[in-house]
């Protein structure tokens, strides 16, 4: 297989912002599916084949359910609104994924280079590391609920409460420990940070932004026409 492309942090941020923009404005299904296709390609180009397949698969199921139920959703458990949210969350996840896998030192160094103030840069760096951890906590809580026999489809709200509270408690604890560790390791050092990886905006980063912006404008125009 070809060596995966490595995009610059800034290019990835551009893609994330563009996706956020599109998700906020686009209502037409066809356009949403094309974004899904493009983002899958974007992930595969960078070597995230498995994640691309996983996320793409979930989105596909949501779309399928939508069509099978002819746009009404499956009963109260899976209303159309829910499917709508799932597809959009998947889009956001796909655009954010390459950012999350990034080494933190690089993120800190880039923010430093771009003169982004610490009050913004530190929380973002922190989130990059934090999200994948919380994912693990969810599965543990699920297993525990299962064993206690507290997962019942008859009380979906109660089940959600049972899941959210322990996950929140764990998340708070982990985030505190992570933050303490980062502070003790000089993340707030006011001088210039370096990175073991070279930080350069290469030609393919430029092309990525260019194509991304172009495609976004195209889709927004398309969306405008579809509505009128």
């Amino acid at each position: 297989m070809r060596k995966p492309l490595y995009f610059d942090f800034r290019a990835k941020i551009v893609i994330l912002i563009l996706t956020m923009l599109l998700v906020a404005f686009v209502t037409s299904n066809i356009i949403v599916y094309s974004i899904l296709g493009i983002l899958t390609l974007y992930l595969i180009l960078q070597g995230y084949v498995r994640s691309a397949l996983k996320v793409g698969f979930i989105a596909l199921i949501a779309i399928l359910i939508k069509y099978i139920s002819s746009g009404k959703g499956l009963t109260v458990l899976m209303p159309d609104m829910f499917l709508f949210i799932i597809t959009r969350i998947m889009l956001m996840l796909m655009a954010a994924h390459p950012l999350m896998g990034m080494p933190p030192g690089e993120a800190v160094a880039v923010f430093n280079k771009m003169h982004v103030p610490d009050t913004f840069a530190l929380p973002v760096t922190f989130m990059l590391r934090f999200l994948p951890t919380v994912k693990n906590e969810f599965s543990s809580v699920f297993a525990a609920l299962h064993l206690r026999g507290l997962l019942s489809p008859r009380h979906p709200l109660r089940a959600i409460e049972y899941i959210i509270v322990p996950v929140m408690i764990r998340a708070t604890r982990i985030s505190e420990e992570l933050a303490a560790s980062a502070e003790a390791r000089g993340i707030a050092f006011p001088g210039e940070h370096t990175s073991r990886r070279e930080i350069v905006f290469r030609r393919h980063d430029f092309w990525l932004c260019f194509i991304g912006i172009f495609a976004t404008i195209g889709m927004l125009v398309w969306e405008g026409r579809a509505i009128t």
Partner: peptide, 15 residues
């Protein structure tokens, strides 16, 4: 390697 470098990177040590 990225993890091992994290502290050094924060203190601006040369690549």
């Amino acid at each position: 390697e990225d993890e091992l470098a994290f502290g050094c990177e924060n203190y601006g040590i040369d690549r």
